[in-house]
Simulated scan of single mutants.
Amino acid sequence: MGCDGGTIPKRHELVKGPKKVEKVDKEAALAARWKYCALSTEKLRRPIVSCDLGRLYNKDAVIEYLLDKSADRPNGEVVSHLRGIKDVKELSLTDNPEWEGEMRNTKGDRYEDMNCAMFICPVVGLEMNGKHRFCFLQTCGCVFSDRALKEVKTEICHKCGDPFKEEDIVVLNGTKEEVDKLRKIMEEKRAKTKAVKKPKKSKIVETVSKPSDLKESPESTETVSADGNISTQNVRDSSQTVSGAANSSSSSKAIKPLAMPGSKRSIQTMDEKSEIYKSLFTSHSSAKRTKDQTSNWVTHTPYHF
């Protein structure tokens, strides 16, 4: 078989050499990163969110992942650093007026520009198709091209006017080196937040323990004499001296204990009430019965007196 008709085989047809390295299509790779969700591999649709590493996701896909992390997903490693919905920021994107949708060339009779993107930079007008570097601000979520941030240097957002710092700028779909740098910054921020939360808990414990210490410590008062000298005296000691002086002055009269505002006092001990008023209550001496007046047995509903 073969070599019929005087054909001469060449060397590459007879000897098997090393396999050629498959090259990835650049346009297909850019479309996969900038037009599709990094988690669900579905087309990006609003609302679109991004993490601290600059990856693009559909918000619905992120919420489904956070609700059920045990489910098997093909791109589970991409979102392994997400702990909650606060770790992502919803992006404020600017629509491209030239974007006509995916079905703009249904008949196939017109040129289809693969570089046309859904969103553009609101300052410079560059399309967000992967050929230009884009960033977003963690403070407000507005998306700009890197060229716009370099040409118009300001500390206020060009779109919404919120202030921001250089630390708040995150590169979207950056290189491997940029992603590693963003990962270090993310870990440092999380470590700082943990260090800030711990002192707050210790302060709460201290405030709870302070009132008990104050109850145990005796109360003291400061008095200023005519010479200008300040002398401190415990309230308990002063109260004892006052009570001692009262006992010595009223030795002949018996001092009745004053009732506390929350305690109950018997009506019979009230001097301001008359005897007629006191006799209306069962605690009066006239209402008490002797042994002869009481019966020897008691029923559930006694009809004797």
Rank of each mutant, 00 (worst) to 15 (best):
residue 47 P to W: 02
residue 15 V to T: 08
residue 66 L to D: 07
residue 143 V to W: 04
residue 139 T to S: 03
residue 214 L to N: 13
residue 33 R to C: 09
residue 245 A to L: 15
residue 258 L to K: 10
residue 243 S to C: 08
residue 264 K to T: 10
residue 304 H to A: 11
residue 247 N to M: 12
residue 181 K to E: 15
residue 17 G to Q: 06
residue 128 M to H: 01
residue 77 E to L: 09
residue 6 G to D: 10
residue 174 G to Y: 08
residue 193 T to N: 14
residue 168 D to F: 06
residue 69 K to R: 15
residue 26 K to Y: 08
residue 30 L to E: 06
residue 141 G to P: 03
residue 292 D to F: 03
residue 190 R to A: 03
residue 190 R to V: 02
residue 300 H to A: 13
residue 71 A to V: 12
residue 267 I to D: 03
residue 153 K to M: 09
residue 179 V to R: 07
residue 43 K to T: 09
residue 245 A to P: 01
residue 174 G to C: 07
residue 56 L to N: 01
residue 73 R to A: 08
residue 99 W to M: 01
residue 195 A to I: 02
residue 181 K to Q: 13
residue 159 K to R: 11
residue 225 S to L: 15
residue 214 L to S: 10
residue 303 Y to T: 13
residue 303 Y to V: 11
residue 190 R to L: 08
residue 205 V to C: 08
residue 156 I to F: 09
residue 14 L to M: 14
residue 286 S to G: 05
residue 73 R to Q: 06
residue 136 F to Q: 01
residue 260 M to P: 05
residue 247 N to T: 07
residue 33 R to Q: 15
residue 47 P to E: 02
residue 215 K to D: 13
residue 160 C to G: 00
residue 170 V to A: 05
residue 131 K to F: 09
residue 180 D to Q: 12
residue 4 D to W: 11
residue 143 V to S: 01
residue 25 D to K: 00
residue 58 N to R: 07
residue 200 K to A: 12
residue 80 S to M: 06
residue 1 M to Y: 08
residue 16 K to W: 01
residue 132 H to Q: 11
residue 141 G to C: 01
residue 134 F to Y: 00
residue 102 E to T: 09
residue 110 R to L: 13
residue 218 P to A: 06
residue 158 H to K: 10
residue 284 H to L: 03
residue 182 L to A: 11
residue 23 K to T: 11
residue 107 K to W: 10
residue 225 S to D: 15
residue 124 V to W: 01
residue 223 T to L: 14
residue 67 L to F: 02
residue 66 L to Q: 00
residue 19 K to W: 09
residue 296 N to H: 09
residue 297 W to D: 09
residue 14 L to R: 00
residue 283 S to N: 14
residue 97 P to E: 04
residue 79 V to H: 04
residue 105 N to A: 07
residue 175 T to A: 10
residue 268 Q to I: 08
residue 191 A to T: 06
residue 45 R to Q: 14
residue 71 A to K: 14
residue 212 S to P: 02
residue 104 R to W: 06
residue 203 K to P: 02
residue 79 V to A: 02
residue 23 K to F: 04
residue 43 K to I: 05
residue 85 I to W: 02
residue 117 A to M: 00
